[in-house]
Amino acid sequence: MIALLVRDLKLSFRAGGGFGLGLAFFLIVTVLVPFGVGPQSELLSRIAPGILWLGALLACLLSLDRILALDWEDGSLDLLATSPLPLEGAVSVKALAHWVTTGLPLTLASPLFALLLSLPPAGYPWLVISLLLGTPALSVIGTFGAALTVGVKRGGLLMSLLVLPLYVPTLIFGAELARRGAEGQATLTPLLMLAGISFGVIALLPFASALVLRVNLR
């Protein structure tokens, strides 16, 4: 399992683009928003939690097809499926590798981008907490979408169509948590719901991902 994690991390650092691309995309979304809605910092600070969450979500989505498609093309998935590593474990590790290269850097960089959108000071810790809790769910759900569409040529658009509706609950509770934190309201309910969704999908969804991957491999 660790070997697979190390390999995936190595590949995404070496192959160029895997690591920095998500961050760059996140930055561009953040920069473009004021061009779209106007530079009034009052408006920006109000919509900042939502924009940052949406940007993180789209940056995640952008790199989903790398999770499994490359291993599918070069035959590694066939070989992994006949290895002693259970496929459920393999997809979990791959989701983890995706999170380490996408979700984690986005979370760590988010305060910087929040600065650009004049997020109220009280919002910073909550923004980081919400992304830290929510982005693993995005990676795990995304891996399920990648496993569903791995056999489809140019399946990126199809995968977005399948994955985005599945992202709705995570987005709602994540953005709500960040927003309430920024406005100094009670945060317990969205915090618990977001944590519940994250732990729920981490525990259960890999079984579905492995199941559809096996179907796709046969």
Binding site: I2, A3, L4, R7, K10, L11, R14, A15, D71, E73, D74, G75, S76, D78, L79, L80, T82, S83, P84, L85
Partner: peptide, 28 residues
């Protein structure tokens, strides 16, 4: 069973040793 297909499952960005080391780790 060890299975070898038409495609070798090699990673272009890993060295020969790293490619082999990965599979030997997977197979313990």
């Amino acid at each position: 069973i060890a299975y070898a297909a038409h495609s070798d499952g090699l990673k272009a960005m890993l060295t020969v040793t790293e490619n082999l080391r990965f599979w030997s780790d997977i197979f313990e």
